[in-house]
Simulated assay, not measured.
Amino acid sequence: MNVYDHYGVEKQDVGDVVRLLGEMLKVCFLPHESGFLGEYYLAMGEGGASYRLIRNFSDNEWQEEDFKECVWLLEANEVVEPDVLMVLLSGLEEIKFLYRSEVEEGSWMRRYVFVDGKLEMIREVVV
């Protein structure tokens, strides 16, 4: 099963965001370019974890329209201890946990939000 956590970052300046997240996650974000995502930042972490930082609004399109207050989106993939990361990042005023996706390839995908101190499943899709 693969776990993907999504966070919103309300800070505007990408330099500040990259520095803050790099220090907290103990990783180095490097700039990348994509025809689909535009400019984004990627970092590799412990145990095969990866972190991708993308603009929420790019090329006149929202990545996460329900979270327009978030300038940047952080995708944390395959983190060794995702719940520990969620507590760490959610402790910051400018970062908020958006949702978690769990994927069992060829079987199902589940989406969770954090409600009343626990993860609550809001959707399950069988594939």
Rank of each mutant, 00 (worst) to 15 (best):
N2L: 07
V3E: 01
Y4I: 05
D5M: 08
Y7V: 01
G8Y: 03
D13R: 11
G15H: 10
D16L: 10
D16W: 12
V17P: 06
V18M: 04
L21K: 05
G22T: 00
E23I: 04
E23S: 10
V27W: 08
C28W: 12
C28L: 11
F29Y: 05
L30V: 08
P31E: 02
P31L: 02
H32A: 03
E33F: 15
E33C: 12
G35S: 15
F36N: 15
L37H: 12
Y41C: 01
L42Q: 05
L42K: 09
A43L: 06
E46A: 09
G47C: 12
G48K: 03
S50Q: 04
R52T: 12
R52Y: 09
R52P: 10
L53S: 08
I54N: 04
R55Y: 09
N56Q: 10
F57Y: 13
S58W: 13
D59H: 11
W62M: 00
W62T: 00
Q63C: 09
E65D: 06
F67G: 04
K68N: 02
K68P: 07
K68Q: 07
E69G: 09
C70W: 05
V71P: 13
V71N: 10
L74A: 13
L74R: 04
E75G: 12
N77G: 09
E78K: 15
E78P: 08
V80I: 10
E81Y: 14
P82Y: 08
D83G: 12
V84N: 14
V84S: 14
L85I: 00
L85Y: 10
M86H: 14
V87Y: 12
L89S: 03
L89Y: 11
S90T: 03
S90I: 02
G91E: 04
G91I: 03
E94R: 06
E94Q: 11
I95R: 05
I95V: 07
I95K: 03
K96M: 11
F97K: 05
L98K: 01
Y99N: 08
Y99P: 06
Y99Q: 04
Y99H: 07
E102S: 02
V103Y: 09
E104A: 15
E105V: 11
G106W: 15
S107M: 11
M109Y: 13
R110N: 14
R110L: 03
R110C: 06
R111P: 07
Y112M: 00
Y112E: 02
D116K: 05
D116G: 11
G117D: 01
G117E: 01
K118M: 13
L119S: 14
E120F: 04
M121R: 12
I122M: 06
R123Y: 15
R123P: 11
E124F: 07
V125P: 14
V125N: 14
V126P: 14
V127C: 06
V127Q: 13
